[in-house]
Each structure stands twice: as C-alpha cells, then as structure tokens.
Amino acid sequence: MFRGTGPYADGPPVVRAEDYRVGKALVGTFRTPSLREVAETAPYGHNGAVATLEDWLTHYVEVTNQPPADAVGSLAPSLAPVRITPQERMELIAFLKSLSSDYASAWTQVPQALSSVLKEK
C-alpha cells in the first residue's frame, strides 16, 4: 500500500511495470531498486559492476556526459558531475548504511558465490 500506485502515494501517477511493452523505447532502461537494506545488497549499479557503496558514490561524483563506447542506450542529459566535500561523502555513505537493519530475509542474504568474493576485498 506504500508503493507509488498505493493510496498513500503523494507523487504523480506511476506507470506500472506491467504496462510497459517490449520494444525500442526500453533499450538501455532499468528499474531503480529500493534503498531499503542497500548496504547489504551489493553489487550496485544497473549492471552490478560496482562492488561497494563507496565505489558507487565515486562513480556518480565523477560522472561524465560521455558514455563508454560499449554502452547500450544513452546517458540522461540531466546527469552532471556532483560536487561534494569529503565530509558530505562520509555523511551520505553513513545515511545509506543507516537504511539497513539487522532483519534477515531471503532478499537481504548475500548469495554464497558472491559472499566469498566480497570477503576478499
């Protein structure tokens, strides 16, 4: 009931995923996941290429408007480098980590194959 289509939604109407049709309009798109338990759900990025929250933040602080040559789709023209201080960087990472809890569920468990890789880092 707290989703974008629920009675407590306070934003513009949400298009349900079921309403999208496969085609050229969806090339390069991806669904943005919830921030709940974000510290426990590595890897990050729409393609899972970023291993830590710190690396994810570095990626967005250093974003350019030129996509890599092998990228599918195009970057949003609204993307611009983010200017934050080292203190703001620490505070943002701390905030994101605060969105996780000690609650364990099937959604917050690290897959066994990934668990050993993360422990090495």
Rank of each mutant, 00 (worst) to 15 (best):
N47S: 14
E54K: 08
P67A: 12
T41N: 09
H46V: 02
P68I: 12
A76V: 00
H59W: 10
A49Q: 14
V63S: 09
E62D: 13
A76I: 02
W56T: 10
T32W: 11
A39C: 07
E37C: 03
P43F: 04
A76F: 08
V63F: 04
P33E: 14
E54D: 14
Y44H: 03
P33G: 13
V27K: 10
W56Q: 15
R31W: 09
L26Q: 08
L35T: 07
A42S: 09
A51Y: 05
W56G: 09
W56A: 15
A71H: 08
Q66T: 11
E37V: 00
P67W: 06
A69S: 11
G48C: 03
T52R: 06
A51M: 10
W56P: 00
D55T: 05
S34W: 06
L35K: 06
A69T: 07
L26P: 01
Y44F: 07
E54L: 04
A39R: 06
F30K: 03
G48M: 01
A39N: 06
A51C: 07
V27R: 13
R36D: 14
T29V: 04
A71L: 06
D55I: 01
E54R: 10
S74K: 15
A51F: 06
V61I: 12
Q66A: 14
G45A: 01
V63E: 07
E54Y: 04
G45W: 02
G45N: 02
L35R: 05
